[in-house]
Design a protein around this nucleic acid. Structure first.
Lengths: 198, 198
DNA sequence: TTGACAAACTAATGAGATTAGGATAAAACC
DNA sequence: GGTTTTATCCTAATCTCATTAGTTTGTCAA
């Protein structure tokens, strides 16, 4: 299918993921990717539409992996069990992919080559929210309450892992414990119907 | 004090704040700042140590303003009153400063010209955490519980405003309501001593 | 008026993204 | 097997930007 079996879009993306997770988001450059792939920079344009397109592809990749992981750890579980599993897996993903994780929240791309990716990423993001909603459905919320609860949970999870990654939790206090406390807080609120009025 | 009253460090920083809040973080460049200041790019180096130094200065600026604002709205209030005021002001700051806000969480700088700024920023960040701790002190937590609660609250606040800024809350459901729900969740947990075991 | 100094300038370098156009190897086709 | 097609890769060039070096020039103070 492809003449001269060398670089492929997948290989570029794979290498980009490795790069940003080990060296940080700011270390992502077409020049360094090309060098590590043994190719000149402009050659990358045969596989990706440019840096923005690559970022869009990375966003899609991250969302797909995260959604799959959350899906996997929550099947067969419900309520507190499912909630804790989902939360811990979310944090694990962010910890293992410190570069990829923040890209999953970047804004969708514009037009051009990455339009398909942007659309697919939006769908993956919707499925991801769906997984969270499924977990919360075990608490039998009704109407808008489930949506408010989903937003609250996503906020707490994203906030915690972001602050953790930024090194914003300075004090020498167990982070795992803090995280579990945070999740328990949500569980308690869900059990006690804190969202009923909403 | 200064020959040729033209550009000053403060003016550069002020203009940088305007730029990132109106055009986004990625729009920050020495070239555009210099042009808007009516000066050649290298001249900026008489006032700032470079782009990294400028980012460090912006981080400091953001932390100082945020801390001052949170301080102001919580004096004379306690418990639920103080908590809600602090949370809303936090969100207001993030909304009014979509470019400056994320910089407040960036990692501290290294050496060189920005070392003083980095140190000052760390102190401002510590004061900011102090404000949150003060608000939570009204709930009479003891020991590590207060720290866990602070982390939980910061996580939720940062997460919400980040997701909001990223446009990650897609559904047409009132955001103000979701936010207040989230804050009430923390209030309820604090009142009910959810952190007692910690 | 003059000397000192900060602030501004020009010139140059280097990294990086991106585009245009030509060369080529591999696959597809006859 | 030879030919055509096509995707991949290349070189060359342009553009933007950050940064450094070295020089000029206002402005203030003595």
């Amino acid at each position: 299918m492809a003449p001269r079996p060398g670089v492929t879009r997948e290989r570029v993306i794979d290498l980009a993921v490795e790069t940003i997770d080990s060296e940080g988001l700011q270390a992502l450059s077409l020049a360094s990717l090309a060098k590590r792939l043994g190719v000149r920079t402009p050659s990358l344009y045969n596989h990706i539409g440019g840096l923005d397109d690559l970022r869009g592809a990375l966003r899609l990749r991250g969302l797909e992996v995260l959604e799959r992981r959350l899906q996997r750890v929550t099947v067969g579980r419900a309520r507190r069990d499912a909630l804790l599993a989902l939360a811990r897996e979310y944090r694990a993903f962010a910890t293992e992919h410190p570069g990829l994780y923040p890209l999953t929240l970047s804004a969708g791309g514009q037009g051009g080559r990455g339009a398909r990716d942007a659309e697919a990423a939006d769908e993956a993001a919707a499925r991801l929210v769906g997984v969270v909603l499924s977990v919360l459905s075990g608490y039998e919320l009704e109407g808008d309450a489930a949506l408010h609860a989903t937003r609250a949970l996503r906020s707490s999870l994203h906030g915690f892992v972001s602050l953790e990654a930024a090194g914003a939790f300075g004090l020498p206090l167990d982070l795992d414990l803090s995280f579990d406390h945070l999740v328990e807080l949500h569980h308690a609120a869900l059990v006690q119907g804190a969202y009923a009025a909403g």
